[in-house]
Simulated assay, not measured.
Amino acid sequence: MILLISDLHLEEERPDITRAFLDLLHGRARGAQALYILGDFFEAWIGDDGMTPFQRSIGEALRELSDGGTAIFIMHGNRDFLLGKAFCKLAGARLLKDPSVVQLYDEPVLLMHGDSLCTRDLGYMKLRRILRNPVVLFVLRHLPLRSRHRLARKLRSESRAQTRMKANDIVDVTPEEVPQVMQQFGVRTLVHGHTHRPAIHKLQIGDQAARRIVLGDWDRQGWVLQVDEQGFQLAAFDFVNPQLALPGA
């Protein structure tokens, strides 16, 4: 069994989400071969040197799972792209490039955070290119912590305001971009988060059937994609009762 999650946006102000995540680690994830976290794990991350006690406690909880034999992989999101090697070392996790192709039960699967697929959001794509530039990343990591805190608050505030003003199709993936990326990497299954629109979309790429699986964000409920011998199952669960409610159950 392999589990994939994304968009938890962990922060001290949402203890309900934190409890649900820890319940997952102490429960279902205990028997998993691997846990993949596809970005926006934290609501904000200003650098490993600015790690808070709360964030450190999350890393320690992941380390406990890793020490128990579950491989942990973390991918950058648009909120936590400064997360680095120090946190991964603490958590016993490996940093996964975006995008990456991994073998899930003998099937090559393309994993992405998903923001790079939203190509119609021209303003965001321009900002993304700037912030992910290696030179800019170097400068950001060496800014004083106070400056990084101010910048993070500013970016989050502007992002929320702009998202409310944009049309729904602008902040979703570009339909034409999906098959192009999947063909580029030679896969028939794509898994991503970011858009907060959980679903399994059936696609046709050439003469082959394909699918795009969108992970849900953790807000009013949690979402987990479970991959095993039975296939891919995308499920939501209630924070109060973390028992997975599988589709059709």
Rank of each mutant, 00 (worst) to 15 (best):
L122P: 03
L143Y: 08
R120L: 08
D106A: 07
R197N: 03
R146A: 12
R129A: 11
M182K: 00
V109A: 00
A210D: 04
V178Y: 04
L117S: 03
G123V: 06
R150Q: 14
F185I: 03
L215Y: 03
L122I: 11
A161D: 11
A210S: 10
D219Q: 15
V171Y: 08
A167F: 06
R220V: 12
K154T: 07
P175F: 10
I130F: 13
I130S: 05
L140D: 05
Q162A: 14
Q204D: 14
L190Q: 00
L137H: 00
L151H: 11
P175C: 07
L143G: 05
R197P: 01
F185V: 04
D217L: 03
V173D: 06
L104V: 04
D207G: 06
Q162N: 12
H142Q: 13
F138Y: 13
R188T: 12
R148E: 09
H149L: 13
V178L: 14
R148M: 12
D169E: 15
V173W: 10
W218E: 03
S116C: 07
I130M: 10
L151N: 13
V135E: 10
I205L: 15
L110T: 00
V171I: 15
S157H: 10
P179M: 06
D217Q: 05
F138G: 11
K166C: 09
M182S: 02
C118P: 02
V181I: 15
L151G: 13
T163F: 11
G193C: 07
I200A: 14
M112P: 00
D172K: 09
R129E: 11
E158L: 12
R128I: 06
Q221T: 12
A199I: 03
Y124Q: 04
I200L: 12
H196C: 03
Q180H: 09
T163E: 12
L127P: 06
R128P: 08
T163P: 02
L215R: 01
V136D: 03
A161Q: 13
L127V: 13
A167T: 11
M112K: 01
M182F: 07
H194R: 02
I213F: 01
L137K: 04
R220K: 15
G193Y: 01
V109P: 00
M165R: 15
Q208Y: 09
R188Y: 06
V136A: 11
D217A: 11
L104N: 00
E158G: 02
Q183H: 08
T163V: 13
R120C: 02
F138M: 12
D169W: 12
H192W: 02
M125P: 10
R220W: 06
D172H: 13
I205K: 02
D219G: 05
Q103T: 01
V136T: 15
V178A: 08
D207P: 01
H142V: 07
V109T: 04
L143F: 11
Y105W: 04
L145V: 12
D121C: 10
E158C: 05
Q103K: 06
R156H: 08
H113C: 04
V181S: 03
G186M: 07
V102E: 04
K126L: 13
R141H: 14
K154E: 11
R148D: 06
R197H: 08
